[in-house]
């Protein structure tokens, strides 16, 4: 028996209890989160609105009879009927089906763009807040420049330069979100940097990178999670808006903003595509906002 296996053997019960301890901790956190959620009716209503859309988006193929791209020139601009629950649009496509598949687009691109922004924002904000000095000054000046842009304007010029595609929508919205996230992370880092446990880690001889990632970042998570949720709401808001402005996903991809844009020229003939897409985006964005807002207020109450 070599020494390696002895270590493994002696370690395994310890690892098990460690794992159990961790599971218990995670469970407690999850329960704490739901208790927080339960305490705020606003957040619950918001979450319900969002979850309905998530459900519809996931099961879109099972819940629809027609493909969102299938055109039927014999049934153009039809009002709701038994065959087409929400009628058809100006190309004879089933509005209900486009609506459900459109939910996939927005629910995928929204969080994705915020995650991208979050990663880059953290990568910029952590060192800026940790090192301060000239590095901080340079990073903040550059981010201030981006912040000087009204968001829509920044998105418009980025997408007009790159061309409309789902990838470029994600890039544009991520770029728009980076400065805000970086600023938040920087402010939190500047605060946490002076804490005892960071000093202890320094004494221990941990590298700056380890301190930033293992000590500071985990302690930023509360405000970051709330900010993340708020930003998904904004992202959905802007994905819809870009679609409406004709800078979103190129047709024929089902996209709520694009549906409103296309339908609003045919509004006199058939109001259903516009009405359903508009209400869909309003309900999703309002739901996301209620959820994030409720959670934020509830979590602030205990601070």
């Amino acid at each position: 028996m070599n020494s390696q296996s002895i270590i493994n053997q002696s370690k395994s019960p310890l690892a098990w209890s460690d794992l159990l301890f961790r599971i218990n901790q995670t469970w407690k956190k999850i329960r704490g989160f739901f208790e927080l959620l339960w305490a705020s009716p606003t957040a619950m209503i918001g979450l319900a609105m969002v979850l309905i859309w998530v459900f519809l988006a996931i099961f879109a193929p099972a819940l629809t009879r027609y493909s969102p791209l299938e055109q039927d020139y014999k049934n153009i601009n039809k009002s709701p009927s038994a065959e087409h629950i929400l009628g058809t649009d100006h190309l004879g496509r089933d509005v209900y089906s486009r609506l459900l598949f459109g939910a996939r687009t927005i629910l995928l691109l929204g969080p994705l763009s915020v995650v991208v922004a979050l990663i880059i924002g953290i990568a910029l904000g952590l060192p800026a807040g940790y090192y301060t000095g000239w590095l901080d000054e340079v990073i903040m000046r550059i981010l201030d420049t981006f912040m000087a842009f009204p968001a829509i304007l920044l998105y418009m010029i980025i997408i007009s330069a790159l061309g409309p595609s789902s990838m470029n929508v994600v890039i544009a919205i991520a770029i728009g979100g980076i400065p805000g996230i970086a600023r938040l992370v920087r402010a939190l880092t500047m605060d946490i940097r002076t804490r005892e446990y960071v000093k202890a880690a320094k004494l221990r001889g941990d590298s700056d990178f380890t301190i930033m990632v293992r000590e500071i970042l985990p302690n930023c998570r509360g405000p970051l999670i709330v900010d993340f949720l708020m930003r998904i709401g904004y992202a959905a808001f802007y994905i819809g808006t870009l679609g409406f402005l004709g800078l979103g996903l190129p047709p024929p991809t089902p996209d709520w903003g694009g549906m409103v844009q296309e339908g609003h020229t045919h509004m006199m003939a058939n109001i259903w595509p516009v009405l359903s897409a508009t209400l869909a985006i309003v309900s999703l964005v309002v739901g996301l906002n209620l959820f994030a807002d409720g959670l934020r207020e509830e979590s602030m109450r205990y601070q």
């Binding site: 409406f244 985006i281 309003v282 209620l290």
Partner: peptide, 10 residues
């Protein structure tokens, strides 16, 4: 909250 959250175009 609803009027702020709704996109302007909607």
């Amino acid at each position: 909250l609803v009027t702020t959250a709704s996109p302007d175009f909607a």
